[in-house]
């Protein structure tokens, strides 16, 4: 069994917060305008990511994330920081 990619894991977590199936979530989609998230659920998503990937994401980092692709990129950046 192959390990899920970062993209797959992020999209799976997003799908737990919005009424959209994982397979219908695309990187270019905007968390708010396209997926219906608000500031509270955006922060909840970052919290879930922080726990799932064991990242030290801060509250202030949420403001930089507007799309699925940016969410994935944020996880990659923090994973790289953790590995450094």
């Amino acid at each position: 069994m192959t390990q899920p990619t970062i993209e797959t894991r992020v999209i799976h977590l997003i799908s737990q917060l919005v009424p959209v199936k994982s397979q219908d979530i695309k990187p270019e989609q905007r968390l708010r305008d396209d997926l219906g998230m608000d500031s509270v659920s955006s922060m909840e998503l970052l919290s879930m990511l922080a726990e799932d990937f064991e990242l030290d994401v801060g509250v202030e980092d949420v403001a930089d994330v507007h799309t699925v692709a940016q969410t994935i990129e944020l996880v990659k950046v923090f994973l790289a920081k953790k590995a450094a």
Partner: peptide
Amino acid sequence: ARTNVLALRQ
């Protein structure tokens, strides 16, 4: 389970 814990983790 679904609490936003970002600020607590910090």
